[in-house]
Each structure stands twice: as C-alpha cells, then as structure tokens.
Nucleic acid binder design. Structure first.
Lengths: 218, 218
DNA sequence: AGTTCCATGTCGCGG
DNA sequence: CCGCGACGTGGAACT
C-alpha cells in the first residue's frame, strides 16, 4: 500500500465527468491497484478508481485508465508525504448478516409468528422476485411472509407486488401478506394495515434463544 | 487527518455485528471525526464510523461510539506508522450528472421516443412528486414519462403513483405512463407491462449525437 | 428533522 | 458471466 498526501487536482471521465480543484488530499494506492482520493471529511472518497486498472506515473501526473473507457487523472503539484508499506493479506471480515439469519430462524420457528403455521417454501419465486417465506396457516390459507431487519414502506410495496401475482394462482389464492421485522416503522404499519397486510415485530435474540433451547433438548 | 498503519483487531456492534481478526491495516481519522479501517484490497473500508461520533483513546485500544448505539472497537497490537497532517478545507467536487442530462436531451428530442410527441412540461408537479416529462402524443393523449439511467422496479412504482394522481385530473385523463431508461431491467419490464405502462430503452450517445447534428446545422 | 430518491453506488448470490 | 436485490448502503434534495 502506498500512502501519500499531496496538493493535487483530479479529473475523472467515465460514467460521469468530475473535476476536483487544487487542494491537499490523501491518496492511497492499494496492493490490488485500487486508487482512492480522500478529503478530510466524510467516509466516502472524493474520487477513486477500483481494480482492475492501469496506472501510468509520469512527472507529477498520474494517469489511471480501466478498459471500460474510464480515466482518472491526478496532477500532483506538491507532495508532502509519500510512503509505502506492505500490509499482507487480510483474513477478511466476519459478519452476522441479520436478514438472512432472521429468515432462516423464522423458517424454523414459524410457530413464533402464528400458531400452527407451516412452511411451503423459502424464496418462493414470482415474476417480480422471490417471496421470503411462503406458508400455510392453521386454517389452510396461504401466507406470504416478507422478512426485513427494519420494516419500511418499500417492504410493504414489495409484499404488495408479490401478493398481486400470487393471488392470480388459483392453487394458492387467496394469499394474505405478513411483514415481519425487528422494527416496523409507523408509516409502514399504516400502509400495511390500509392494504390488509399484517405486520409483526419479532425479537432476534428471543428466536436465537428459542433455537438454542431446542438444541439443548438433544 | 491522522494516518496510521497498525496490526489490529476490530469489532463493530451496531446495525450488525462484525469482527476483524488481527492483521495489518490502514487506519484514518479525519478532521471531522470519521474513522476508516482499510485493508490492501477493495475501494470500500473494512470497517468505519462516520461523524458524529466520540473517540476514547486508551492504552492500545480505541473505543468509538455514536449516540445511536453503535460501537467500534480497535485494538492496536503494534503500530508501524502514525502521522498527522492538516489538509485544510476541500473546495469540493464538481460533477455533471447523467440522469438530468438525459432528461434534458429527451425533452428536446421527444420524437426519438414517439413520432409526433410534444412537451407539456418538464418536472410537472403532482402531490407525490414531480413527473419528469409530461407530454402530449400524436393522438392528443397525455403521457407521463419517467426518466431513469437504469429502469428498475422502483421507477415503475414511482410512475404508478404519479399516474394515480394525474388520472384524477379530468383535464389530463386518461394519462398513460412511459418508463424511459438506458437499460430497463426484466423485472421492471414485467411489472410495467402488467400495469399497462410502456417502457423504452434509449441510447444516450445516440441522443447526444442527434443533438450535435442539430447544432452542426447552424 | 424526516422522507424520498440517486449513485462512478459496492457487494454477494444464484442462474 | 449476467441478473438481481441487499446494504452498517451514503448523500443530496426537498418537505
């Protein structure tokens, strides 16, 4: 990794055209070729070029191009700082994805949603995308469940689209919708209720706990 | 801006939980308080905390919290490099956006969309937001055009909401919808067709070319 | 401040 | 490889 601080002007031509007037900035060139230009505010770089790309370093000017017709030009007027250090490979990030895990947990504990509910299929396909959980309720009716970390308006819209298509399948119809999330926002509640869609908040920890309880039985 | 390279382990708890095993990484603390942790690949930080936040620096451990219950913990096992430099304010980025330009080009070349179509107004207001282009077609019918760089399901939903309101105005009704984009995704096509909304792909270069041809006449 | 919509989005998964 | 949806989306524009 090469790290420098320099007074520079930057130009990008590609998916759009952008220009950065002269100022002092942090420039990082990573081992994989990625180039980042950062100012002293905000998490996002002002400008960048991801790998794969080709860097030509000339007298005070870097020209970075990338096969897709994009081009980043850095004019380095004054370099205040320039160092190189080998970081080695990164073991990478471990993260607990919430939505998928929540979907998996729910699929195995549908009774936590409604007494007597059973799973027809996870990721049930429709022409406008897959329904997270397609279920049968205690009365034999079909229920489309959309799982989100946060239940917002677009979750209700998504479920509405699925229902529109599912209800044309006379083997399934009538299908009702159920939005499940750790938090369901007030606007989403209102819209869901207005459309006859159910909503339910679930506690992740509780479900995870329920699972470890089940495991403990064996 | 403070720039350091250190062998570190990182933990994030907040919108999800994530853990980074020990490795050598670049750590940047910006003047506004933003903290970034970068590995030697990819443009995106492995972990970060944007401003506003609160940083407590202890013996080999940084604790960064942010009022919304998020917490980033950095354990610095060995610091290889640590420097501070003042960048000053950045004059900021100037960029030419694609979508607006596309809308402008289309407004001036409606015949490229449909023979005989004329413009009523750009950014025609409705209670749920402005319609990009409101037009009259060759047969005297009203057409609401939504312009996007990429036509996706969101665009169809947006147009659907506009049509709902426009069609209540008996001076305009019936109004049909037309989604215009450089690329219209299959799911968006399906949904649009299902709702009787038209869609059309246009070539930006071709439009820009048509315009320069016109200019060349003068 | 809350909401909506764009993005040089980036990323990861499934066909 | 492309299509498609999630994202700790981030950020800007607008109410």
């Amino acid at each position: 990794m090469r790290i420098l601080v320099a007074d520079c002007t930057v130009d990008y031509e590609g998916r759009l055209n952008a220009h950065l007037p002269r100022a002092r900035r942090l420039i990082v060139v990573k081992a994989d070729g990625t180039v980042l230009v950062h100012a002293d505010t905000s998490g996002k770089p002002l400008n960048w070029m991801t790998t794969p790309n080709h860097l030509i370093e000339e007298e005070g000017r870097w020209l970075i191009t990338n096969g897709k017709g994009e081009r980043l030009t850095l004019d380095l007027h004054e370099v205040h700082f320039d160092t190189q250090i080998d970081l080695g490979e990164d073991p990478g990030l471990q993260k607990d994805a919430v939505e998928l895990e929540l979907q998996r947990l729910l699929a195995e504990h549908l009774d936590a949603l409604e007494e007597g509910m059973t799973l027809i299929r996870r990721e049930y396909p429709t022409p406008v995308g897959p329904v997270d959980l397609l279920c049968r309720d205690a009365g034999g009716g079909t229920v489309a469940v959309e799982v989100k970390r946060r239940g917002e308006i677009d979750g209700v819209e998504q479920l509405t689209r699925y229902l529109e298509f599912l209800n044309r399948d006379h083997r399934l119809a009538p299908v009702r919708g159920l939005l499940v999330a750790q938090i369901v926002k007030p606007q989403a509640r209102t819209l869901a209720e207005d459309r006859g869609i159910g909503w339910r908040e679930v506690d992740y920890e509780e479900l995870a706990g329920a699972e470890s309880d089940v495991l403990r039985l064996f």
